[in-house]
């Protein structure tokens, strides 16, 4: 088991390294001269040359990559050419905001999906089961930003229950934070929850057909108890796989949702930095997002090992 986890850790590091090469290369070939961005279009060629040298842009690409990746490893994301601030200072607080948003969104998704999917599976040949199934089908068709706009229209504009946007820091009062978190988390989570519910449903339907569930019933367990005790953990394995993919989708979806709800998160920062051609920051943000996705997958892999004894000893 330990070997398996170590191996997954190794895979994580290698993938992260490979991803960093891709990110670096892509952003290097994007047109635009960081020195020019820093000094403005009116700068003299001599000043530009000096600026390039100061920024290390005269170095060959591999050397620049090496410097970047070494910095990355020590938490140094470089200095923004536009704001002259360390990138990390801008990035860190916004990362916290986005992670909170993503976590809340995924939480909503799971809270919606797991019961909805299980009920839809248990009652799959009854009218209400079909209703739940149809409900999740509807959810699948709605994109997150549209759900966000609808939620704002209903709950912020008409009912005035929640603010239509904005954000407060966690330190400024939990109640206020939750009020600001509610609508964006719902718009992220409801749609993903609807998608996930379909997977939960089919996964539960699959385990319902498993022989060991029949064995459990032959022992005297009621169908629902057999499902709860023997089925759900087995059903969780494929759901976990989909959840990992969904978490990634939620993370990317947060970029858009932050715009809809005017939240100063990582996505908002990313769009802003692209506007100002602050490539140093863009590169750092993209890399952080990539690392987050890889980390999610690493955690899911470790969870597999915990859930499934068969994986603990297999290669």
């Amino acid at each position: 088991m330990v070997i398996r986890i170590l191996r997954q850790l190794g895979v994580f590091l290698l993938t992260a390294l490979a991803a960093s090469v891709v990110v670096f290369t892509l952003l290097s070939v994007v047109p635009g001269d960081p020195a020019e961005v820093a000094l403005g279009t009116s700068a003299t060629p001599e000043a530009l040359e000096a600026q390039r040298e100061a920024m290390g842009l005269d170095q060959p690409a591999p050397a620049r990559y090496a410097e970047w990746i070494m910095g990355l490893a020590t938490g140094d994301f470089g200095v923004s050419a536009v704001t002259q601030q360390p990138v990390i200072d801008e990035l860190a607080p916004r990362l916290g905001t986005t992670l909170l948003l993503v976590g809340a969104g995924m939480g909503v998704a799971l809270i919606v999906a797991v019961p909805l999917g299980i009920v839809a599976a248990i009652r799959h040949n009854k009218p209400d089961g079909a209703f739940f199934s149809g409900l999740s089908q509807l959810g699948v068709a709605v994109p997150a930003f549209l759900a966000g706009i609808l939620l704002i229209t209903v709950f912020a504009v008409h009912l005035r229950w929640f603010p239509s946007g904005g954000w407060v820091r966690p330190g400024d009062g939990l109640g206020d934070l939750l009020r600001h978190l509610a609508l964006p988390a719902l718009s992220l989570g409801l749609v993903q929850g609807a998608v996930l519910a379909r997977y939960v449903r089919s996964s539960v339907l699959d385990v319902k057909r498993e022989d060991y569930l029949r064995t459990a019933r032959a022992k005297g367990l009621s169908p629902n108890r057999a499902l709860m005790k023997h089925g759900l953990r087995n059903a969780a394995i494929p759901v976990l796989t989909v959840s990992a993919v969904q978490l990634t989708v939620v993370l990317i979806g947060a970029v858009v949702i932050e715009r809809v709800f005017v939240i100063n998160g990582l996505g908002d920062l990313l769009l802003m930095k692209i506007d100002t051609r602050d490539m140093q920051s863009v590169q750092a943000i993209v890399m952080v997002l990539v690392l987050a996705v890889l980390l999610i997958n690493l955690i899911v892999d470790i969870l597999y090992t915990i859930i499934d004894p068969r994986l603990r000893e297999r290669a």
């Binding site: 022989d211 064995t215 459990a216 032959a218 005297g220 499934d308």
Partner: peptide
């Protein structure tokens, strides 16, 4: 009722199935 059968299954009458490879919960 399911409850009535539940009392009988595993006590008064029980069953052995065809496929031993899938008859047991793999996670337990």
């Amino acid at each position: 009722s399911e409850a009535r059968f539940g009392k009988l299954r595993g006590t008064v009458a029980s069953m052995v199935f065809q496929e031993p490879m899938t008859a047991l919960n793999p996670l337990m």
